[in-house]
Amino acid sequence: MDQVAHRRRQYAALAWLLLVAGAGLAAPYLPLPFAPAEPDLLAVGVSPAQGAGAGHWLGTDPLGRDVLAGLLFGARTLVLVTVPAALLAALLGAVLGSLAGYGRRLAAPAPAWLLGAGLGWWGLALPRPALGLAAAAGAGAWALGQWLRHRSGPVWALSLDALIQGAGALVGTVPRLVLVAAVATGGPLSLTGLGLLLVLTNWPGPARLVRAETLRVRALPFVEAARALGLPAACILRRHVLPLALRPLRADLPLRLAAFVGLESTLSFLGLGLPPDTASWGRLLDAARLDPAAWWTAAPPMLALLLTTGALLILSKK
């Protein structure tokens, strides 16, 4: 009985999510009387009852923007930002997590490491960028000297596991909202820019899941057997390890989407991230602050956020 009820809840959740995605993607093609960022100066802050006659079926916010248009285009923003970002974060996490878990080492001649570090220092404009250029030039001279003398120099190997774990820990040391907000404070971001920002700050979660699963799978007998047969590491990883190691991501993806929905709305509510003329549920909530009595501005995005995150949580359960 519980199973049936849960299945029904999952269908309802899926239906809601499809509705949100469909409405969002179709928003530019719907016969809406008002654009989401265009204020109707003759109908500022009108309730649904007052605004229905003028085509504002859900009323307008205290800046005169149509709430229905904001809701639909906000859904579009949500879909275009969060879905690709969650998929990309999962993909990046899967690649990095599997490399870390499979224990690969990255080996290169020492001058190449120095050259990369020096150019990185200079490119990132870290303090005294000339030092980076000097290090790169030194590395270049070292490599040239070795080539002229037909001698091979030392080869430095770096554990990918340590590198990826370290990078993940570095990203994780700052609370995610603060990290994203600090970057977004620099100025308005495009949809792509915000999506990339979400990916770059959220890949460690999937990476840790895949790494843990890869560590478990690589010790299984069939992987040992494949290694004994002499199959290349990349082949073992792709054909035998990853299909099993990626399983946790199926449950993680809806949860990550729910987190991204919350994060995007929070950023928009705080006035960060997307430009002020890009519709967002968080921005509708922000406009509600100007007139706390205008319930019609706050209620639709709150309800939509509640239902969307709830639906994603339901889908994440088996």
């Binding site: 654009a35 960022a37 265009e38 204020p39 100066l41 500022v44 205290p62 800046l63 005169g64 923007r65 100025g187 308005p188 006035g271 430009p275 002020p276 003329d277 100007l290």
Partner: peptide
């Protein structure tokens, strides 16, 4: 000025009117 509803309304109105004749306007609160 961000947080000023009057200024934001003016900015949104100008942007919408400019968009109607094909002039893109980026808003910088």
């Amino acid at each position: 000025r961000t947080g000023d509803a009057m200024q934001e309304t003016i900015a949104l109105q100008f942007r919408a009117a400019a968009a109607r004749i094909g002039v893109p306007v980026a808003l910088l609160p």
